[in-house]
C-alpha cells in the first residue's frame, strides 16, 4: 500500500543531469574568462538550490498531477475541493453505486485552508499591533534600554521553536504555573490550553520576532534629521509619527507582514500541542495526508495549492514595496 511509494525513476537522472549541467557551467565559465570568475563562488549554492529547492518543487508538482501509478490525473485537485472524492470512488468499487451516492461533498480540505488563512491573518494583525510599538521603542536613540530589548528578543530564538512551544504547555496547563498563580490569588482555575486562543498565542509568540526585526531595521536606518525637520516645520510628536516615521517604515512593515504571514499559514505542530486537535490547521492536514493516510499525491496537491496561494499574496505585497527596501524578502 502506502509504503511502496518511491521517488519516480527520473528523479535520480534529474540529479545526475543537474550535476552534469553544473560541471559544464563551471567548465564553460572558467574557459570563457580564462580563469576563475568571482561569480563562480556562488556555484556551490546554485547546485544546492537546484537539488534541494528546485528539484523538490518539481517533484511536488509531479506528484500533484499524477496518481499512485504515475499516470496523469487531476483527481488530487478534485479531492482538494471535495475531500470525499476518493472515498466515493473506493466505495463504488466495494459497495456499489447506491452506497457511493449517499456520500455528499466533503469540505474538510477547503475549510481547513480557510481556517488557516484566517488564523494567519489574526496572527499577523496581533503581531503588528504588538510589534510596531516594540520596534519603535527599540529603535529610539534616546532610549537606553533599546539595545537590551533587541538582545532580549533574540535570546529565545537561540532555542528551537518546538521546545519553546512545549514550554508553553507547562505554563498553560490546568495545573501549570499560570493556573497555580490564579488559584493562589483566588481567581480559580481557567481552561487556557486546547483552544484557538492558545494556538494563536503560540503562533504570535513564535513569529513576533519576524515582525519586530524588519520594522526595527527600517526604523533605525531612518535619518533622524527627517523627524527633526518635521518638528521644525510645526508637527507635534503624534503627527511626526503618523506623517513621517510610519510611511518611511512601511517597507519594514511589509517585510514583517510577509515573514509572519507565510510561516503562519503553514503552521503545524503548534495547533497539535497547544490546540490538542481542536484547531486543525492546513500544515497538520498536509502532514497527516502524507504520514497517516500515506497519500503522497494528494499531500503534494495540497502543498502545491498552498505554495501558489503564498506566491499570490507575495506578489500582491511586492506591489506595495517595489524596490524591496524592507530587506527584499518580498
Amino acid at each position: 500500500m502506502i509504503n511502496n511509494l518511491q521517488l519516480p525513476p527520473w528523479a535520480l537522472w534529474a540529479m545526475v543531469l543537474a550535476l552534469i549541467v553544473f560541471i559544464a557551467m563551471v567548465v564553460i565559465s572558467v574557459r570563457r574568462n580564462h580563469g576563475i570568475k568571482r561569480s563562480l563562488f556562488a556555484s556551490p549554492y546554485i547546485l544546492w538550490m537546484f537539488i534541494f529547492t528546485l528539484l523538490p518543487c518539481v517533484l511536488i508538482a509531479y506528484y500533484a498531477f499524477t496518481d499512485v501509478n504515475g499516470h496523469f490525473t487531476l483527481d488530487n485537485f478534485s479531492s482538494f475541493w471535495d475531500s470525499n472524492y476518493i472515498m466515493r470512488e473506493n466505495l463504488r468499487s466495494v459497495a456499489g453505486d447506491e452506497m457511493a451516492a449517499t456520500v455528499a461533498r466533503g469540505s474538510v480540505n477547503v475549510d481547513t485552508l480557510v481556517y488557516s488563512l484566517w488564523m494567519a491573518l489574526l496572527c499577523t494583525v496581533v503581531s503588528l499591533i504588538l510589534g510596531y510599538p516594540a520596534a519603535l521603542f527599540m529603535a529610539d536613540r534616546k532610549m537606553k534600554l533599546g539595545p537590551t530589548l533587541v538582545v532580549l528578543f533574540i535570546i529565545p530564538m537561540w532555542m528551537n521553536f518546538l521546545l519553546r512551544t512545549i514550554a508553553w504547555m507547562s505554563l498553560l496547563e490546568d495545573n501549570g504555573l499560570i493556573n497555580a498563580f490564579l488559584e493562589r490569588i483566588g481567581v480559580g482555575k481557567v481552561q487556557l490550553m486546547y483552544n484557538q486562543q492558545a494556538v494563536l498565542l503560540g503562533m504570535v509568540y513564535n513569529f513576533l520576532p519576524f515582525m519586530v526585526f524588519p520594522i526595527y531595521t527600517s526604523l533605525s536606518k531612518m535619518d533622524p534629521k527627517l523627524a527633526e525637520a518635521a518638528q521644525d516645520l510645526g508637527c507635534n510628536d503624534m503627527l511626526t509619527l503618523l506623517k513621517v516615521t510610519m510611511p518611511l517604515s512601511l517597507p519594514g512593515v511589509i517585510s514583517g507582514i510577509t515573514m509572519v504571514f507565510m510561516p503562519s499559514v503553514t503552521t503545524f505542530f503548534i495547533p497539535r500541542v497547544l490546540g490538542g486537535g481542536n484547531t486543525r490547521m492546513f500544515g497538520d492536514l498536509i502532514e497527516s495526508t502524507f504520514k497517516t493516510a500515506g497519500n503522497w499525491n494528494l499531500g503534494s496537491a495540497l502543498s502545491l495549492i498552498m505554495m501558489v496561494l503564498i506566491l499570490i499574496s507575495l506578489s500582491i505585497l511586492r506591489k506595495a514595496d517595489p524596490n524591496g527596501e524592507g530587506g527584499g524578502i518580498v
Partner: peptide, 21 residues
Amino acid sequence: LDETWLNIYTTLYSEVLSTKV
C-alpha cells in the same frame, strides 16, 4: 485493511479531526 478500506477509514476519521467545538 486493504488500501480501499484504509482510505475510507482515513477520510471519515479526517472529518472527525476537523470537527470544531
